[in-house]
Design a protein around this nucleic acid. Sequence first.
DNA 1: CTGAAAGCGCTTACAG
DNA 2: CTGAAAGCGCTTACAG
Lengths: 339, 339
Amino acid sequence: MPSDTGSPRPTIIDIARVAGVSKSLVSLALSGKPGVSDASRGRILKVADELGYTSNTWARSLVRGRSQLIGVVTTDVGSAYNADVVTGIEDEVADSGYGVLLAHGRRDPDQLCIGIERMVQLGVDGLIVVSSRAPRAQLDGAARTRPVIVVERPDDPGDLVDLVRNDDEYGGRLAVEHLVDGGRTRIGFVETSARAAVRARGLAYDRAMADLGSDHRWRIAGSARHDATFARRVVDTLLDEPPARRPEALFVATDETAVAILGAALDAGLRVPDDLALVGYNNSALAAAIRPTLTSIDQPRNLMGRLAVTMLRERWSARSRQRIEVMTPHLVARASSGR
Amino acid sequence: MPSDTGSPRPTIIDIARVAGVSKSLVSLALSGKPGVSDASRGRILKVADELGYTSNTWARSLVRGRSQLIGVVTTDVGSAYNADVVTGIEDEVADSGYGVLLAHGRRDPDQLCIGIERMVQLGVDGLIVVSSRAPRAQLDGAARTRPVIVVERPDDPGDLVDLVRNDDEYGGRLAVEHLVDGGRTRIGFVETSARAAVRARGLAYDRAMADLGSDHRWRIAGSARHDATFARRVVDTLLDEPPARRPEALFVATDETAVAILGAALDAGLRVPDDLALVGYNNSALAAAIRPTLTSIDQPRNLMGRLAVTMLRERWSARSRQRIEVMTPHLVARASSGR
DNA sequence: CTGAAAGCGCTTACAG
DNA sequence: CTGAAAGCGCTTACAG
């Protein structure tokens, strides 16, 4: 049990006693409501300040029935991608009287459930889930008692939660067309997971290739979280192809894996982009840090975070119909796909 | 104002009514206390389950005076470095009945203060600050009413908060000795900020060079968060040196900057490690992802997170004397410092 | 083994 | 403009 250190936290009653008024008057003065004389208000605020008073969140939330808290559950603390979304959320929330609290999903549906559960227990007024991996049942459960916005593309979103996601179909097309514009014809796709977003990027690859009249297809799949082994396998498989079929460019569904493949390609003596051009997805900080720098598809992440907060507000005020917002990504050209 | 959706959340009173017992009995049964017959307990638990009851955190915390929550304020959601510490904290907390809640410091003392303040308001039972940038006054303020552990090396820790940090002096020495072992004699130091940890690494550089009988010194300082400009300046400055004074190796106080310098060096046509060897600090995910791979000093981050929780427990049970734990880092040799 | 009562710190009608 | 009272949902002594 936590030990009580120092003097006990002052309450409204302490302020009332020192200021010589009733406790309801203190409450009114503190929350800036009318019905308090200027003299009383001034004295009360002064005493509160001197005593170092801070309102007891538990009691306030209990009686008001809401917490003024927005819960954010992220796939992964430690991914710069999520950090941008979180920052957008915080930017939009700033100075609104609401606070933002985070839970860590650890790329694991179970942990995501625990995080969502914790936020629900805590009584957050709104929940933003920055992950595609949270199970539908859990999302729906939380959404029954408060608005839930998912910033990502879940496999099965249902119709209770709102969505903010990027247009993977468009982004995938951008990647392929960019490579074609650079004169590449044999283009492959690396599918880094079975998530809906990644599948959509693969579909876009197929369609773009078809639209461009190419019948070349090359694809390889693997679960590739930080996986140097998978990257090596991609490069080995590629090198085993007869030159006429060997891809001269790869569209990789995720920057992390694109970077790993870039490393494996360099290790194998390939020149990037001359022997192998690469385009990733997400425009992570990595993309500009490595050499050659990595061409990637950028999502407006900060904006997506901000929009999630806006959608929360809409739900609080009136909206009850589901809203799904699809944002347009753009391509950031760098050395890995140059000529 | 959040709208009330669906049926209101069931309370203890609802359970009591359905199960046909008093509400105190329900409370006892739910918290697993003795004094409840097996028959009653079974019935109560069954009803609670059917009603989908979850205990109201606000009310429970209010009456018990504690929240069973551990607050974690991090410098930066999005830094893999912090993520490892956070994961260690969660690993250690798992299944203890406590929950972990995060706040985002955004590398900004003001934001860190807001985060700490939010956790205090929320009434967390213990606070772990994964940052060196939180102002002492704020830490002390929080520490007066609950234990506070800082996982990092603040400039002015005071004597109220506990500390878990790595041995920068030892780590710095490891870096320099490794470069000397590789046959380098002209070694420079890149100071990436004025933080205590970075200064200590610089001091270690000076001492190690002195101990090794070298009177060569080269150092350059700059605030270098993601700063490609600073990295270019480092390389330019280095190339301006006459060959006899030009460093053939750099110990860079942070991986992020080391990676940026590696990029700038390659851009300038330098060969790494032949023309310039590099050693970073923190062994971030980047270090193994780039080419050439980056030699770096690794801190036991998961362990540091776990230890922070242990120290929280000590404070809760008995300890009142400050504890400062200094962990030993080790060097991970990679290509950037090879021969 | 069980039930009635008090109280955690706050907000909100309601009377003066 | 101000004060006494009720109640948010829970836990914890205290009687039976």
